[in-house]
Every structure is written in C-alpha cells, then in structure tokens.
Design a protein around this nucleic acid. Sequence first.
DNA 1: TCGATTTGACCTTT
DNA 2: AAAGGTCAAATCGA
Length: 370
Amino acid sequence: MDMEQMVLISELTQGKELAKQLRNHLKPSSSKETRDFLIQQILGSYEKALSMLNCVGGAASSSMVDEPAADQFISTFTNISPRSDTSGLDYKDQCHKHVYKKRKTMPQWTEQVKVCSGTGLEGPLDDGYCWRKYGQKDILGANFPRGYYRCTHRHAQGCLATKQVQRSDEDPSIFEVTYRGRHTCSQNSQLAVAAMASSSVPPPPMSKEKRNQHYLIKQQEHEDQNKKQSQEVMMFNFGSAAGLKVKAENLDNREDIFPSFSFPQTSIEVDNVGENMFIESLIENNFMGSFSPKFISPATSESNYFPVSPSHNTHNFGLGHSVQTPESDLTEIISAPNSVTNSPIGEDFDFSLVKVDFDPNFLFDNLEFF
DNA sequence: TCGATTTGACCTTT
DNA sequence: AAAGGTCAAATCGA
C-alpha cells in the first residue's frame, strides 16, 4: 500500500466519521451552522478522495473512477444495482495502475420500459429524442431481435448517441433499452418524435417471406395506434400506462448518475433522520427540480407518448448532481421530458404539488420505479 | 424526391 | 470461429 492509498483511505475514513457526526446533529436542536460545517468537511473529504482517484480533471469529469460507495448508495436507495453485464467495456485504456476501473469512452445505461397492454401504447415509449434505426440483429438465446438506433442528428450535428432495444424474453411487455453515449445534439424538434416510438420496436423473428407482409401490417398498426393515441393524448396518466425501470446499469455510467457524490447543502428540519432525510434532501435538491415545466404541463407536449427519458443530458435520475453536456442549455433542459414522467408514483399524482406538499416518505416508498 | 427502414454483408470483439 | 455491432444498397412511403 503506497502513500497515495493511505491518504485516500484516510480521506474516506474522515468523510465517514464526519457523516456520522452529521447524523448526530440532525436533531432539530442542533445548529444549522454545525451541520453546514460538517457538510463542508464531508464534501471536502470526498472531493479530495475523488480527485486523487482521477487521472485527469476533477471528480465531475472522471470517467474511470470506481465508486462502490455510489453504487451502494444507488442500490440502497433506488434499487438500481450495478450493471452485471460488463461486456463492451474497454479494458485496454487504464490510466493508472491503482485505479481499479477501466475507462470506457461512452457512458452506457439500460432502462427497462414496461408497456402495459390495452393502453394503445404497445411499443417502447418515446424518450424524447429522434432515433434512426440502422440495424437489427437476431441475438443468440433471445426470442426477439435487437434493434439498433442512432441519433438522427448523427451526421448533422455529430451526435454519437445510440441505443439498442431488446424485447424481454420473460416478459414481452418489457423492453430493455440500452443507451450509449450522451446526446450532443440539440433536438429542438422533440415534438415531432411521436412517430418514432412505434418504430422502435424490433419485430418478432419471422421468415423472410413474411417480412413484407409484416411490414405492411406494422404500418397499419402504426396508423391505428396514432389514431388511438391522439384520442388519449390529453389523458396523461403518469404511471398507469407504462412503467419505467432503470434496471441496472453500467458501472461506467455511475459518474453520470453520480458525477460527484456529495451531500446536499440544504438545511433540513425533519424528525426522521437517516434515509428519509437523505431522500428528502434529494427531493429538494434534484428530484423536484427535475420536474420540468413541460412535465408539469404535459399539454405543451405534442407527443402522444409518455416521454421516457434516460437522462436528457442530466444523468442524475433525480439523484445526485446533474451533469450537463456542454451543449445543453436551460431551454433544452426545460423542454426535455424527464424520466420521472413515467414514474408510477400513483395514478392521481398531482404534479402541481409544491415542494412543501411532497411527503418524503412517499418518495421513499415509491423508489422502486427506479 | 427525400428521409426512414430493412436486411444481407462486412467489421469488430471475444 | 462465433456472436454482436455497423454499414449501405434497396426499398418504402409521405
């Protein structure tokens, strides 16, 4: 164990101890100044530790730091577990022998999109981006082919975002959507993406002879679906039509989810300390903040689909700090549909709720949707 | 006519 | 070598 590791462990240990102290000062009787001080100390410890682990840049720019703590946090609070499938990781480009993680150029994460039958929404829901299908492949051991999509603006704007859509064998109503890379494009015309959704469904395997026939049928279904959906467009029902699960994604994406794990600096006055307090902090700092105006006022969207956004440049899933891609601006953030849109937080959830009405226990009890 | 999808061929990775 | 991933010509359809 070299000096660097010792210092690292020391920093993390210090952070842990400070967190314990902070926990003891969560009583309403404790002063805010004390808590703020402890928070600053904790942040400092984590930032030092992370910067030591980074090869280049700060913690937020890290793309190779293994963050088991973040993983554990995610698993604990959101049911997101580290991606077990590490295929596709680039093991070649390690920048430091003591850094336990391999570098990967593109962030990757998977969502499981469940589509309930009878809703008229039979395919993976639109995620707010324009995708162009560039391939389809039968996958060994899978009943359904995998569809390959890239961002429509790949050539126009050099956006390298891609996604793969794989229908689940166990539950055909579930689509596993693996996203790779962040969008670097500015998709101002997100309104026009509705028609993309139904086409993102890889069809079931079939003989060549049937393909043309199927294609015609599919197109008809598409039309019927659009009619159906246009009737339902105003019936936004957040949670009953489709469920979104961010299954388990890639360790390499953790830095996107948790670019720089840190405790929120919000002063919190709650009786229940511990997890609920933490979740409430997240709510105050991010979750509610991630409800875009569009989200609150779905009527502004012309999409007939429930947006299922993987991230929309803010790969925080409502947790941690957002990482904005350089090109993203406030307008885009605001106009972007959000992953929480599909949260089955309850069918009658009123999104006009203000922060103060948001029950922390409520969210905690419903985090399964992650 | 143009943009999107299909699909066999080709390339890459393991 | 096999499987996954991408390319690009052919095709579709608005």
